[in-house]
Design a binder for these strands. Structure first.
Ligand SMILES: [Mn+2]
Ligand SMILES: [Mn+2]
Ligand SMILES: [Zn+2]
Ligand SMILES: [Zn+2]
Lengths: 126, 126
DNA sequence: GTATTATTGCAACATTGTTGCTTTAGTGTA
DNA sequence: TACACTAAAGCAACAATGTTGCAATAATAC
């Protein structure tokens, strides 16, 4: 495997995601950066982290990618079979501690899963 | 509810989706049209169909929306709790006849679900 | 046939993400 | 510390998907 370097900007991304209560879009991560960083840089940092299994993402109903640290992820199976929830009101995407039993699919090779539920979150519900 | 009209272009979209073996992106639907149709028109036709429950869509890992007719959908609950599978090789998104049991989420109002599995489909597997 | 207005077309735009190339800076070695 | 190597970051231009406002068209009712 290729060598990697530790950089300030990578650390910032980790810090931001560590303190995040929800998953974050690239746009949100950029805004949370304490210094100015190019968006391409953030895209590539997240890409590297995703390859290493440090981070996972869900594609929201809006087509945007939302990133989260892989803390409690099912890394041993290299999947992230927990549910995500996207709120139609505040748009936030949350990782939920519910695992989904992945069915056996004859002749299909399952590599990843994205389980997304959509509705109104606990904070926005009146 | 507002009045609707029957148009040739709406019928074409229904025909195309009826004969489709997989879900279809707007781009694919446009290409399958027997006559030239504006993309905005297709977006709006699909939007109206989705509201009526004639059609549902999944957002692929690539962020694109993939549409399918609601034939066997769980329309009584206004949800589409079956699994979808996106192939990393041929990119096709397929509706699969597996239902997912949606967990009860205290203080969350679940309106829709999108369950996506990603990997290699039965046609692309060697 | 005429009026009404849902549907379509068009052009301009917004957003998200990608690519190729240059520049910067992290790391190991002398 | 100085230097070489090259991963990481910056930049600009681009691609792809989807959206908006308004004008033109055509389905339906009378
Ligand atoms: Mn998650
Ligand atoms: Mn489906
Ligand atoms: Zn919310
Ligand atoms: Zn395939």
């Amino acid at each position: 495997m290729k060598k990697t370097r530790n950089t300030q900007k990578q650390d910032f991304v980790i810090d931001i995601l560590t303190n995040a209560k929800h998953t974050m879009s690239v746009e949100a991560i950029l805004k949370a950066m304490p210094i100015k960083v190019n968006k391409t840089t953030v895209y590539r940092i997240l890409e590297r982290f995703a390859e290493k299994g440090k981070v996972h993402f869900v594609t929201g109903e809006d087509g945007k990618a939302y990133y989260a640290l892989c803390n409690d992820c099912n890394i041993k199976h290299e999947m992230h079979n927990h549910i995500h929830f996207q709120c139609k009101s505040c748009k936030k995407v949350t990782c939920l501690p519910y695992e989904i039993d992945v069915p056996e699919l004859k002749n299909f090779e399952i590599q990843e899963t994205q389980f997304l539920m959509i509705g109104i979150c606990d904070m926005c519900i009146s």
